[in-house]
Design a protein around this nucleic acid. Structure first.
Length: 483
RNA sequence: CGGGGAGUGGCGCAGCCUGGUUAGCGCGCCUGCCUUGGGAGCAGGAGGUCGUCGGUUCAAAUCCGAUCUCCCCGACCA
């Protein structure tokens, strides 16, 4: 039975092989496909529609926070990247270079942007002269290229889509505030719209962005127990303003370097949606970002085209009027059962079935993707009812993911315990850390786990003993094996 | 980049070890009939220079070499 089912869905069960399950889901649902070049993928319409929803919702939040969008060039002169050495060192191994224009060799190679701090810094130097020009709060939606050695659809591809915010401020305080403001914006966005609970915190120096003073991140736990970085927010200090000479005259007529931040989230979020919420039947999309929120499947019996179909169209219209993304699948060449399975795989949050029986009873049958629960639903209160269920699915997906995260977060005091849990259960492991990079490094070597974040919220007061070296430690941190 | 595995119609695979008629199977696809409340059934049909390039051979999906791509495990990253 199980074998048959697999043959039908053609999705490897999650428990059998998580990686295959992940790729199967992405390909069967037509979110993405491999391109013929190494590490590259095509985001297909269904996947891109999710991205468009993410873009729309996040863009609104970014704008509400006072930012404006702009677009900077894809190419960055090598000399620009070389200005900030730490930045260059961090990205050099994965930069793609343009060396020729047509047949002509270029005098200076151009980097295909791995990120845009350098080119944006160069431009800000021209635009900023006075404290009155500050703050500069700019965001761009773009593609970037990083020549990664190991790739995975959505999680790590050679080219990916993202937004990158780049701000410049008068004071360090202000820049710091911006960094945490964006971190919170990201957290709220991911938890609200993607229904994925995250841990917000600071990165250790080892894990921080190349060129940043401090990096903050939100981390989520995927359903296989591995962590995924969902977004980052960097306090850049004056590293870039000093090398790009971004100066302004302050209120006391002193020449000062600006304080900067940068921050981004990428199409990786789509991978996170799959891995956080998906099950053996495929995707389970949060209604907020689902391309189709409600699928209507007419039950094709007898003279259904005269009876059922018009009713289904009415339902469709009413839901559209109510601002719900609804689709009616009236194709004759597929049976209702086939459609049920298909839209379950695609993660559509709510399915409405309408058949002759329902018309008699002035109802529809509503099935939730998150629970599989079936309810008969009066047509009287269709819009309010569906809206309520969509909200409930959104909340339930978050609650389920939060339960999972909590059930898979373990506090440890000894390294033995740490190793045992990372082997047997994975998940987040919390423990004291002395702050020494050596301990962090050793733990990584021996267990493949890294410090994901030093959480913003104090979890434990006082001090403890570093789980590795047993020295006094004041940092209570999150470890995990990460993607 | 190191170690391992794989590439055969759209998808999943068999065949390869031991070279030899016309390269099979399931799903999908097309046509017709019939069906339709959880991936229907029957009949007929289309579709493959076996990842690519080269070599060995009378003969290569099969043996050898190179190369590209994917997957898994490690070192680097959103």
């Amino acid at each position: 039975m199980k074998k048959e089912e697999r043959q039908v869905t053609q999705i490897t069960p999650k428990s059998e092989d998580f990686s295959r399950w992940y790729v199967d889901v992405i390909r069967r649902t037509e979110m993405a496909d491999y391109a013929p070049m190494k590490g590259m993928m095509v985001i297909r319409p269904y996947g891109y529609a999710i991205w468009e929803n993410i873009q729309r919702l996040l863009d609104q939040r970014i704008k509400n926070a006072g930012h404006v969008n702009a677009y900077f060039p894809l190419f960055i002169p090598e000399s620009f990247l070389r200005k900030e050495m730490e930045h260059l060192k961090g990205f050099a191994p994965e930069v793609a270079w343009v060396t020729h224009g047509g047949q002509e060799e270029l005098e200076e190679r151009l980097a295909v942007r791995p990120t845009s701090e350098a080119i944006i810094g160069a431009m800000y130097a021209k635009w900023i002269q006075s404290w009155r020009d500050l703050p500069v709060l700019v965001n761009q939606w773009a593609n970037v290229v990083r020549w990664e050695k190991v790739t995975r659809p959505f999680l790590r591809t050679t080219e990916f889509l993202w937004q990158e915010g780049h701000t410049a401020h008068e004071t360090e305080e202000e820049a710091k505030e911006e960094t945490t403001r964006i971190l919170n914006l990201y957290r709220e966005f991911v938890e609200t719209e993607l229904a994925i609970p995250v841990i917000a915190g600071r990165k250790t120096p080892r894990e921080k962005f190349a060129g940043a003073l401090e990096t903050y991140a939100i981390e989520a736990l995927m359903s296989d127990g591995r962590a995924l970085q969902m977004g980052t927010s960097h306090h850049l200090g004056q590293h870039f303003s000093r090398v790009f000479n971004i100066r302004f005259e302050d209120r006391q007529q002193n020449l000062q370097y600006v304080w900067q931040t940068s921050w981004g989230v990428s199409t990786r979020l789509i991978g996170a949606l799959v891995m956080s919420h998906g099950d053996d039947s495929g995707l389970r999309l949060p209604p907020q970002v689902a391309p189709i929120q409600v699928i209507i499947v007419p039950i094709s019996l007898g003279n259904w085209k005269e009876t059922v179909l018009p009713k289904a169209r009415q339902v469709q219209n009413r839901l559209e009027q109510a601002g719900i993304r609804v689709k009616l699948d009236s194709r004759e060449e597929y049976t209702p059962g086939w459609k049920f399975a298909e839209y379950e795989m695609k993660g559509v949050p709510v399915r409405l079935e309408i058949g002759p029986r329902d018309i008699q009873l002035n109802q529809v049958v509503l099935i939730r993707r998150d629970t599989g629960k079936k309810i008969n639903f009066s047509l009287e209160s269709l819009e309010e009812g569906v809206t309520r269920v969509l909200a409930s699915v959104q909340k339930n997906l978050f609650d389920q993911a939060l339960d999972f995260q909590r059930a898979n977060t373990h506090d440890v005091t000894s390294y033995e315990e740490f190793k045992r849990i990372i082997e047997e259960r994975r998940g987040f492991i919390r423990g004291w850390w002395c702050g020494e990079e050596a301990c962090e490094e050793k733990i990584k070597e021996e267990t493949a786990a890294t410090i994901r974040v030093i959480p913003l919220e104090k979890i434990k007061e006082g001090e403890g003993r570093c789980i590795y070296c047993q020295k006094r430690a004041s940092l209570f941190v999150y470890f995990a094996r990460a993607y």
